[in-house]
Amino acid sequence: MKTFKLILPALALSLFVACSTTTRHSEKVAATADADNQADTTLVATMAIPAASTANSPIEMTFTVYNRTDSIKTFCKWHTPFEPLMSKYLDITSANGEEASYKGPMAKRIMPPPADSYVSIKPKDSLSIKVDLTKAYDIKPGSYVVSYNSQAISGLSITDSVKISVK
């Protein structure tokens, strides 16, 4: 009888735990399905830089975010040109593999980002901003590839890098 009194609560606890695990799993599956359905509704960003520039002069990059969906979308402006220079959000690599030195500030952040850290874009609209790369990176004469490295923070998708020649 004592064994039965010990087994019954253990069995009930096992059943309860098993049910809650299944519920969590189905929530994760639903969240994954929602993320998959939103894959075609993400914001897309592009970078444009003149193909050639001269040393000791500004190198202006145009950063544009497109919302090709039918609803308002938001992205975190942290680690993008849409906030004052606060972080290294670009990788600028020379033809021989050396990275241009980042000389700007590096901010520490609280998580999650506060509401004022997000920018909204209307449906079928875009937002552009220009930034001088020489204010944050030590770019010497040579050929470079510029790529965006902060997709995970901003939520923006950029698939292409940009090439530039500095003389």
Rank of each mutant, 00 (worst) to 15 (best):
K73P: 00
G142A: 01
K122D: 15
T46C: 09
K77G: 03
A12F: 09
N96R: 06
T42N: 14
F4H: 03
S53K: 01
D70R: 08
A51Q: 12
V65G: 03
Q38R: 09
E27A: 11
K140S: 04
I72P: 01
C19E: 15
V166F: 04
A107W: 14
G142P: 10
L13S: 11
K103G: 12
F16D: 08
S94W: 06
A100D: 03
D40M: 14
A30E: 04
Y66L: 10
T42F: 07
E60C: 01
Y66E: 10
F63L: 10
K88M: 10
E99F: 03
I121P: 05
S87A: 15
A100R: 03
S20W: 11
L6E: 10
P9V: 00
K108D: 06
S157F: 06
V44K: 06
V166A: 00
K140H: 11
T62R: 07
L90Y: 02
N67V: 01
H79W: 06
T41C: 10
T69W: 06
T3R: 15
D36W: 07
S126M: 09
G104Q: 05
H25E: 13
S94L: 01
S128F: 02
A12V: 15
M86H: 15
G155H: 02
Y144D: 04
M86C: 07
N56G: 03
K103Q: 10
D116F: 07
K124R: 14
L15S: 15
V131P: 01
S126C: 09
A51S: 13
V166Q: 01
F82T: 06
S165E: 05
N56T: 03
L13N: 11
S126P: 00
T80Y: 03
S71E: 13
I92D: 07
K135M: 09
I49N: 01
D91L: 13
I72G: 04
N56A: 12
L43S: 02
R24A: 14
R68W: 04
S71F: 08
S94K: 00
S117Q: 04
M47V: 07
K2D: 08
G104C: 02
F16V: 13
T23V: 15
P105Y: 10
L8Y: 06
F75N: 08
I7W: 03
G142Y: 07
N96I: 14
E99G: 03
S157E: 09
A115P: 06
T22L: 14
K28T: 13
T64K: 04
H25N: 14
I92R: 00
H25I: 13
S117G: 03
S26M: 14
K167I: 05
N37G: 08
I153H: 01
Y144I: 10
K140M: 08
H79R: 07
A55Q: 10
F63G: 11
Y102M: 13
